[in-house]
């Protein structure tokens, strides 16, 4: 019987080269979280989070609501500020230095549960705004890049519509394209399909699978277990602000080690 606080991890923070199917994967560390703690008031939201992400790795974070998975994700691009510990992204440590924060945000794309598209701009303008103003890309080139990504998410024909005029699934695909236009090294997904109608979930997941197959480094907070099985290199299970278990998806889903994970899986897989 394992105590709740004890972290079960068959996959160590630094896996050996002959470990699992991704043995030939490049071993560049892109994100490193060391003993990260965060409090909301008196509430201890993240407790000693240790996480190392390698380039090209696909990670799915799951866990019950309120377990801190979104907060952990948002600490990576400083949408949430951690209080103790270290977050290092692409060799840059996140501190209060605004310039460094913006530098990291340029390299880290994020997709939100509520899309957060800019409603006053067309789909194309949503995609070109950041490349033009943040990356100082010429507008024409930015538009070409944006159309390329819109084609990749299969909605080039909606480029001149406003976000309010297209469906939720299409909006989320635009949000993915918008993040890709910055040519990020890492993509963060914060429950990208939770706000969607069931019939639209698949179109968004298809785009994410396509992205994974092209070798994008991805960290997804998601409850789409089929997606996790299909693309994830690692599944991280969080509860009460800590990482309780992490493993490759097959082992995690078929023989979870901790009681919390067993209980969680039995709830979401039973229906």
């Amino acid at each position: 019987m394992l105590s709740k606080a004890k972290v079960v991890s068959s996959l160590n923070a630094t896996p050996s080269p002959d470990d699992g199917p991704d043995a030939d994967m490049s071993k560049t560390v892109i994100i490193e979280m060391v003993k990260v703690n965060k409090w909301f008031g008196n509430f201890h939201a993240l407790r000693d989070i240790d996480l190392t992400v390698y380039e090209g790795e696909r990670i799915v974070i799951c866990g019950p609501s309120g377990s801190g998975k979104s907060t952990a994700l948002r600490c990576i691009n400083r949408l949430e500020e951690h209080q103790t510990g270290q977050v290092v992204v692409d060799g840059i440590e996140l501190t209060n230095d605004l310039k460094k924060i913006d530098e990291i945000r340029r390299e880290v794309g994020m997709v939100f549960q509520q899309f957060n598209l800019f409603p006053h701009l067309t789909v194309l303008e949503n995609c070109t705004l950041a490349p033009v103003w943040v990356r100082k890309m010429p507008r024409k080139q930015a538009e070409d890049v944006a159309m390329g990504h819109l084609e990749r998410v299969k909605i080039p024909e909606q480029a001149h519509k406003y976000p309010g005029q297209i469906s939720g699934g299409q909006q989320q695909r635009v949000a993915i394209a918008r993040a890709l236009c910055m040519n990020p090294r890492v993509m963060l997904f914060d429950e990208p399909t939770s706000a969607l109608d069931p019939e639209m979930i698949k179109e968004v997941l298809d785009v994410m699978v396509d992205l994974a197959e092209r070798g994008m480094t991805m960290i997804c907070v998601s409850h789409e277990m089929a997606f996790a099985r299909q693309v994830a290199d690692r599944v991280i299970f969080m509860d009460e602000g800590q990482i309780v278990e992490q493993n490759e998806p097959k082992t995690f889903f078929e023989s979870p080690q901790s009681d919390r994970a067993k209980e969680f899986l039995s709830k979401i897989l039973s229906h």
Partner: peptide, 11 residues
Amino acid sequence: GQYEGGHALGF
């Protein structure tokens, strides 16, 4: 979310 969307893009 509008602030977060903008921040996440590096504005």
